[in-house]
């Protein structure tokens, strides 16, 4: 068939693209296991950089800070984001379209602009740079994603279930806790993981809002790369990308969204 060469070259192109997407990451991971601090070849396997991570207090502190900030962001964004998603879906709220449109700017405006704007505003109201400011900013960035993921799950929900419960005398809170939330659970878990990932991987906004000296992991990595360099950065970067990929795999499994935003 004449279709074969075209389809074959298409597959080949897709394969090349996957190499392009993954090769740098795999090379970085390999180099984190190379004994030479300057990426010298030939390759000599060693786990010394991973061992050194455990003695690098700065990196450990930043990693710990990144994790608990992401946990706080996931908890807050998932709670208030799910509430908003349910409200938007259940009620014909006046101005619903506007409310949905308002979710777009936090995603669409370049983070450089959002981040510097937050810095300016928080400074203006006397909130210094530091972890509370970072959490405030991250939650705002994660909220639209949480609302979108939970809303996507709600699309498959039959509202008559709620009506049935209500007509049998259940109070609104009971309906939410016993009917709506159990159905939503996978979507909410996916949203929480997503929010965690948004915060854990966020660099730009943290860069402007974190206090120099106690930063998050991505900010520390950025500063280390620019300062010149410590080979442990390879190791911690490899761990970071592994964590973020595993998180997103879980999200994809739970939310079953072919990657939609």
């Amino acid at each position: 068939m004449s279709a074969a060469p075209l389809a074959l070259s298409g597959r080949l192109w897709l394969g090349l693209m996957l190499v392009f997407l993954y090769a740098p990451i795999l090379v970085m991971a390999a180099m984190s296991l190379n004994a030479s601090p300057f990426y010298q070849l030939p390759f000599e396997a060693s786990t010394r950089w991973y061992a050194k991570l455990w003695t690098n207090r700065e990196i450990l502190a930043a990693a710990w800070r990144s994790v608990w900030i992401a946990l706080a962001v996931a908890a807050i964004a998932t709670l208030i984001g799910s509430m908003a998603a349910i409200a938007l879906w259940r009620h014909a709220v006046p101005g619903r379209r506007l409310l949905q449109a308002l979710l777009f700017p936090p995603i669409a405006v370049p983070w450089l602009i959002t981040g510097t704007a937050m810095l300016v505003f928080f400074f203006g109201i006397g909130l210094d740079r530091g972890s509370p400011a970072v959490i405030l900013g991250h939650v705002a960035l994660a909220l639209p994603y949480v609302i979108v993921v939970v809303t996507a799950r709600l699309q498959g929900f039959d509202p008559t279930l709620e009506e049935a419960a209500r007509s049998l005398g259940a109070r609104p809170l009971t309906v939410t806790l016993r009917i709506t939330l159990p159905f939503l659970a996978p979507g909410i878990v996916a949203a929480a993981l997503f929010a965690f990932a948004v915060s854990f991987d966020q660099f730009v906004v943290s860069y402007f809002l974190a206090r120099p000296g106690d930063t998050t992991l991505p900010v520390l990595i950025y500063t280390a790369i620019r300062k010149g360099f410590t080979p442990e950065i390879n190791a911690i970067s490899t761990i970071v990308i592994l964590v973020s990929m595993v998180l997103m795999l879980l999200v994809a499994r739970l939310a079953r969204f072919g990657g939609e935003r």
Binding site: M17, L18, L21, Y22, P24, I25, V27, M28, A197, F200, D201, F203, P218, I221, Y222, I225, I233, S237, V240, I241, S244, M245, M248, L249, V251, A252, G258, G259
Partner: peptide
């Protein structure tokens, strides 16, 4: 597989 890198850490990918 195509989408996964996109949702992973942008800074680390540039570093790589």
């Amino acid at each position: 597989l195509v989408i996964l890198p996109f949702w992973s850490n942008a800074l680390v990918r540039v570093f790589s």
